[in-house]
């Protein structure tokens, strides 16, 4: 039998956390680390997550109506008087309650989100960063990681995709225009020096870009070139310094810019657009292009001609978005419309099921046509 | 903001793959749960049930008996109540974490795989 005691002053600093099998694995790995994190700074009071190096779990507080007492065994100095009334073996140990809890923290694996709220956009001008990082709330990558509800691996992946760059230690995001210029210059220089697009090394690529550039006014620093390689390429396995250019990503980037330039005010026939698109690449660039690569960036107001349609101009309410899309184009090829609406499929329904909730679907030959209900 | 979770206290436990198999963990902790409110005095009294250990004031409030072969448990509360319950395996193990605001440290101190649960109405002591 155990004597049960409780401390008169309860410690309120203890919590109970659900340890899923994945979390237990992380705990058991001596090289792993776990961190509690939240977006922003202490005062912002964002939602707390738990992160390993690679994964993010959202904490959910589950209150309950029972009394839970957390107790610790101790050795009593006293001779406890024998309780003979209950006919039980006399107590052999003592436990003292040191905390009570009325809730548990459940843990749900989620996608971590990089917090870029306070990160400045850099367009290549020479006045970034300001001296001493004045007016820059996020002063280092460590700061950025600490203020994001996101694991390190997920953070760095998103950072690379966004065109994040670290200049003199200060994180910034390169503007679209600056990314375009830097990409263009990088491609031209790499081709001029006959560099291999499948194995672009940072040092070589930087040297190629900076050959014959006046260093005083050169915005294409090694950090910028690294950002270009991260955004438009994939790290070669087992080689920390080498990237394979993702030709499709590059082609799509040029294609979106071309749509914006040539198909904003009015639509353009696809054949003509392909020629225009190709013309925006550096001369002799080896990139294959197809209209289908730009799905999610254009609609077809009449027949087959294309017109630029950026998602950020569409309503974020799913019903209204479908309404707008059908107003712009009464019938859609399913493959053309899906990229415009899939981000609003928050419940993760099968795409057919999702579309049928808001639209009509019918087969015409090999195609699937989507129109309004 | 971001803070590391220290697992220093768990190290030996995790390395040896030992974990709780009965009422208390290898590190000496126990989780007790009652379906109800447990009222206990919060102020010291000159009564044999009040003791001081390592400068902590304690009140003795109950007696717990576990029958390990059947996982049954009996809890005597005060002088008047008797509760019947059991040792229950948790669906998901629970980490015991201390958030020490003073030192700015977060520490996982133990892992519970079982709790002692009392969900029936208290019976009078016969």
């Amino acid at each position: 039998s155990l004597n049960l005691h409780e401390r008169l002053s309860i410690d309120r600093s203890f919590r109970l956390l659900h340890l899923t099998p994945e979390l237990l694995e992380v705990l058991k790995d001596p090289n792993s680390k776990l961190q509690f994190k939240a977006a922003g700074n202490d005062e912002d009071d964002g939602d707390v997550v738990l992160c390993s190096r690679e994964k993010t779990w959202l904490l959910r507080q589950k209150n309950h109506s029972n009394t839970t007492m957390l107790m610790h065994e101790f050795t009593s100095e006293q001779e406890t008087p024998l309780e003979t009334t209950f006919g039980l073996p006399s107590p052999m140990s003592d436990f003292a309650g040191f905390a009570r809890t009325t809730f548990e923290y459940e843990t749900k694996e989620v996608s971590g989100i990089l917090n870029v709220e306070s990160i400045p956009i850099h367009n290549g001008s020479s006045d970034f960063p300001p001296a001493d990082g004045r007016d820059l709330p996020v002063k280092s990558m460590d700061d950025l990681l600490a203020s994001s509800a996101c694991s390190e691996k997920e953070c760095l992946l998103q950072w690379g995709q966004l065109g994040g760059c670290v200049i003199k230690g200060y994180p910034c995001i390169l503007s679209s225009d600056f990314l375009t210029k830097a990409l263009h210059v990088t491609l031209m220089s790499a081709m001029a020096e006959s560099l291999n697009f499948s194995r672009l090394r940072l040092g070589e690529t930087f040297d190629a870009v900076n050959k014959d550039i006046d260093q005083e006014s050169n915005p294409y620093t090694i950090d910028v070139i690294k950002t270009i390689l991260e955004k438009y390429g994939e790290k070669v396995k087992d080689d920390d310094d080498c990237w394979q250019l993702n030709q499709k990503k590059v082609a799509v980037w040029y294609g979106i810019r071309a749509l914006k330039k040539y198909a904003s005010q009015s639509s353009i026939p696809p054949a003509e657009f392909l020629i225009k698109w190709k013309s925006t690449f550096p001369p002799y660039a080896p990139f294959d292009i197809e209209i289908e690569m730009l799905r999610g960036w254009f609609f077809r107001p009449t027949g087959s001609s294309l017109q630029y349609l950026p998602k950020n101009t569409l309503p974020s309410d799913i019903k209204e978005r479908f309404m707008m899309l059908f107003k712009l184009q009464s019938q859609w090829d399913m493959d053309d419309i899906v990229p415009f609406v899939e981000e609003l499929n928050s419940k993760g329904l099968k795409i057919d099921v999702f579309l049928m909730k808001y639209a009509r679907k019918r087969r015409v030959g090999k195609k699937v046509i989507i129109s309004s209900r | 903001p971001s803070i590391n979770v220290s697992k220093r206290q768990l190290q030996t436990l995790l390395q040896s793959d030992q974990h709780q198999t009965s009422v208390s963990t290898p590190l000496g902790n126990m989780m007790l749960e009652i379906q109800g409110d447990l009222e206990l005095p919060r102020q010291w009294s000159e009564d044999q049930r009040f003791t001081t250990i390592d400068k902590e004031q304690l009140v003795r409030w109950g007696l717990l008996h576990i029958d390990p072969s059947r996982n049954n448990a009996i809890l005597f509360v005060g002088r008047k109540q008797r509760l019947l319950g059991s040792l229950v395996k948790l669906d998901t193990p629970l980490g015991l974490i201390k958030f020490n605001q003073q030192d700015g440290i977060v520490e996982m101190q133990d892992i519970f795989y079982y709790k002692v649960l009392f969900k029936s109405r208290p019976l009078p002591i016969m």
Partner: peptide, 28 residues
């Protein structure tokens, strides 16, 4: 016996509500 040591039983058990956790509540 002025010292009250007592379980006030609750008929049911409820734990349905879940909410996100704020940074400040970790420390309070």
């Amino acid at each position: 016996d002025e010292i009250r040591i007592w379980v006030r039983y609750k008929e049911g058990f409820s734990d349905a509500v879940r909410k996100n956790v704020s940074w400040s509540s970790l420390w309070s």
